[in-house]
């Protein structure tokens, strides 16, 4: 067997330094990362990166910050759910990780321009959606009405509380939130996120719904949106799969003839509605 170094490869990782790390909930940890040599990640909202620790492995994580927030760094939220993510939870500011990407098709921000937006985020769905929400807020005059519906299991599971509060306080954003299970301090809505949809006032022809949440949520949210007559083309979803390569080869993220890592993770509902095993 001959082994030679390669100049190029799809698998080369860049050095990323953690400049801020913060535990968010029992399961989620926040990381702000900057690339070596002040390189800009140059991502679109909705794209993901492959993050790795040498010797432990690599995993796909969506970028949570908007490219409009800052250029010199980007933010990720990592749920402790496997060997790599557990190891990531042990890292702090100053530690180094490997970064590949960004990968995939993000949200089509140019197509959304001039339209009303209905964001529906369930659970961890807020993580990738936050990137787009902040992008829209930073370019606020380019978009029509902005509605944000947020759902989480309990008030304690809410991520980005401070930021969410700012969205809530904005006059140019219509914000609503609900929890599945309440606690004594909670004064807001209780119930599934689908319960918020009927009450939103929408101009159907010019509304795009952007939905991100756990796999189980999609079916129910989409049904509600269709009831409101939002055209299938105007419902955008981001699908979760466990990509291993990110370059459309390894097969783990395959949905029909699509490779979610390349063709997705963002799809419009009409692109995938008939597709087997997509939702």
């Amino acid at each position: 067997m001959i082994q030679v170094p390669l100049k190029e490869s799809e698998y080369i990782v860049k050095k990323g330094t953690i400049i801020r790390a913060k535990k968010m909930t029992a399961l989620e940890k926040f990381f702000e990362i900057s690339l070596a040599g002040s390189e800009v990640l140059d991502h679109e909202p909705g794209q993901f990166v492959m993050i790795s620790i040498p010797g432990i492995g690599e995993a796909p994580i969506s970028v949570s910050s908007s490219p409009t927030t800052k250029r010199s760094s980007f933010e990720l939220v990592v749920r402790n759910s496997g060997i790599l993510t557990k190891a990531l939870h042990n890292l702090e500011a100053g530690d180094v990780v490997g970064i590949r990407g960004p990968f995939g098709h993000g949200f089509p921000t140019n197509i959304l321009e001039g339209n009303d937006l209905l964001f529906v985020a369930g659970g961890l769905g807020i993580v990738p959606l936050r990137s787009l929400i902040n992008f829209v807020i930073d370019n606020r005059r380019d978009y029509g009405k902005v509605n944000i519906l947020l759902g989480c299991k309990t008030p304690r599971d809410m991520l980005f509380g401070d930021e969410v509060k700012q969205w809530e306080e904005r006059l140019d954003v219509n914000f609503q939130c609900t929890v599945d299970r309440s606690d004594p301090d909670w004064k807001g809505n209780v119930g599934l996120i689908t319960s918020l949809i009927p009450g939103v006032n929408l101009d159907i022809a010019r509304t795009f719904a952007i939905v991100v949440g756990p796999p189980i949520m999609y079916k129910f949210v989409i049904a509600e949106l269709l009831k409101k007559n939002i055209p299938e083309r105007q419902i955008l979803l981001s699908l979760e799969r466990h990509m291993k390569c990110g370059v459309g080869k390894c097969g783990h993220c395959q949905i029909g003839e699509h490779y979610c890592c390349q063709d997705g993770p963002v799809y419009s509902y009409d692109q995938i509605k008939g597709k087997h095993e997509a939702l």
Binding site: Y11, G55, C245, K249, G251, H252
Partner: peptide
Amino acid sequence: YCFDIKDEM
């Protein structure tokens, strides 16, 4: 041709 990617220390 599906594959997995793993690290070996």
